[in-house]
């Protein structure tokens, strides 16, 4: 097996529980105990009501594509073989938006508002990335 050659920035103290969730194949985001707002990326206070009481909460993993851009230029050698590839912004049903990739779909098949759901990609022994795939209508 060839070595994984894409960047994997190390988790921070604030993001570690999120990446631990990915490793368990669970998508978790902060949810405010006071106003029930979900947000991402994780921060110490709810950006909506500034409550410091919040809980890592599992979400449905379902959402839709807010927008996307298709790279035709490789800024990193790890992505050179994948051109053209799409950087996709997914809006979860719970509200937060995540930057990600969509698998099982070519860039020219993407469109805004397309329904997608989370899949997990165990890219190394230590790290699992959240990605999304199109939801079939059936």
């Amino acid at each position: 097996m060839s070595e994984y050659n894409k960047p994997l920035p190390p988790p921070t103290v604030e993001s570690e529980p999120f990446w631990d969730g990915c490793k368990r194949h669970e998508l978790v985001v902060p949810r405010c105990d006071a106003c029930l707002n979900h947000w991402f990326p994780p921060t110490a206070t709810c950006p909506k009501c500034w409550s410091t009481d919040w809980t890592w909460t599992g979400v449905s993993g379902k959402g839709k594509i807010y927008s996307f851009g298709v790279y035709h230029r490789a800024y990193h050698k790890g992505f050179a073989d994948e051109l053209p590839y799409a950087l996709v912004v997914v809006e979860l049903d719970e509200g937060p938006r995540l930057t990600t990739n969509v698998v099982g779909c070519k860039p020219d098949e993407l469109s805004c508002d397309m329904p997608v759901e989370v899949v997990f990609d165990d890219v190394t022994e230590d790290r699992t990335l959240y990605k999304f795939k199109p939801v079939n209508d059936s």
Binding site: K6, P41, Y71, F79, E82, V88, N101
Partner: peptide, 12 residues
């Protein structure tokens, strides 16, 4: 590199 982006090829 920045978290929640570089992993997915978000650069520039």
């Amino acid at each position: 590199y920045s978290e929640f982006g570089s992993e997915f090829g978000r650069f520039g």
